[in-house]
């Protein structure tokens, strides 16, 4: 809805929460990209920068929370306004979590930079991260443009991230079984992959908020769950007798 409110300060508040949310989204987008780059380049300085950014993301979330709560109390938003306020509140919570994941990736990168790389796993993580980053960019655009088709498409794309996570899980477990010295880097990579998988889930959550924002309906149909790592069992190969 483009027309303006009779009380113009209401419009200012609504614009304010949207720009805060977009600033937060931009920061998290950079955080994930930089955390991945730091991992690939074994760049501890960049990793440290990612960790520092977390504070700003958290501060933005607090600011959005305060503003949305005061809007609910003082302005009693209705209809689309209400959905905007509620969706912003929920999306900001997802963004804050994603910021935490990026920070955790960066922390682990500081350790990984000190040890020998494990096979091609870092590259797989990089591809997985690229998928999440693309989904994230698309969903933020969809949020601004109120584009439910793109949002739905992003929601379904989360399955690909899950599959990638399954592959990495299997791959890293195999490395660990083969060589106990690889357990430390593999565990860190596994947690990094898990962080990305969760970031993908939050991106899908944001897509659901776009749907709510536009239609007023809460999406009830469960999105395809493709993360199989919780039930995965890989049998160790028997050692050859020498």
């Amino acid at each position: 809805m483009d027309s303006t409110h009779i009380v113009s300060s209401f419009d200012r508040d609504l614009n304010q929460i949207q720009s805060l949310l977009l600033e937060m989204g931009g920061l998290v987008e950079t955080q994930i990209a930089d955390a991945t780059l730091a991992l690939v380049r074994r760049d501890t300085e960049l990793a440290a920068k990612v960790r520092k950014q977390e504070k700003r993301v958290n501060a933005l979330e607090v600011e959005i929370n305060e503003l949305t709560v005061s809007m609910l109390a003082l302005r009693h938003p209705m209809a689309e306004d209400l959905r905007r306020v509620v969706a912003t509140l929920k999306v900001s919570a997802s963004l804050e979590r994603m910021g935490d994941y990026a920070k955790n990736m960066a922390k682990r990168t500081s350790v990984l930079a000190k040890v020998k790389p494990v096979g091609s796993s870092t590259n797989t993580v990089k591809i997985m991260s690229k998928m999440v980053q693309e989904m994230f960019r698309d969903v933020l655009d969809a949020f601004v443009a109120r584009d439910i088709e793109t949002a739905e498409e992003v929601r379904l794309r989360d399955a690909q991230v899950d599959q990638m996570h399954n592959t990495l899980f299997r791959e890293l477990l195999t490395y660990m079984m083969e060589d106990a010295r690889k357990i430390t880097p593999c565990m860190h990579l596994l947690f990094i992959a898990k962080n990305l998988e969760r970031a993908g889930d939050h991106t899908a959550n944001i897509a659901e908020q776009v749907h709510y924002l536009v239609t007023g309906e809460i999406q009830e149909d469960a999105r395809p769950k493709s993360d199989k790592t919780a039930t995965m069992f890989i049998k160790p190969k028997k050692k050859k007798k020498s």
Partner: peptide
Amino acid sequence: RQIFTSPQDERTESYITGRIG
């Protein structure tokens, strides 16, 4: 509940959200 969260008509939306129609 439906009228106040997702009205179908633009005039309703404008009125309940306090907009100039």
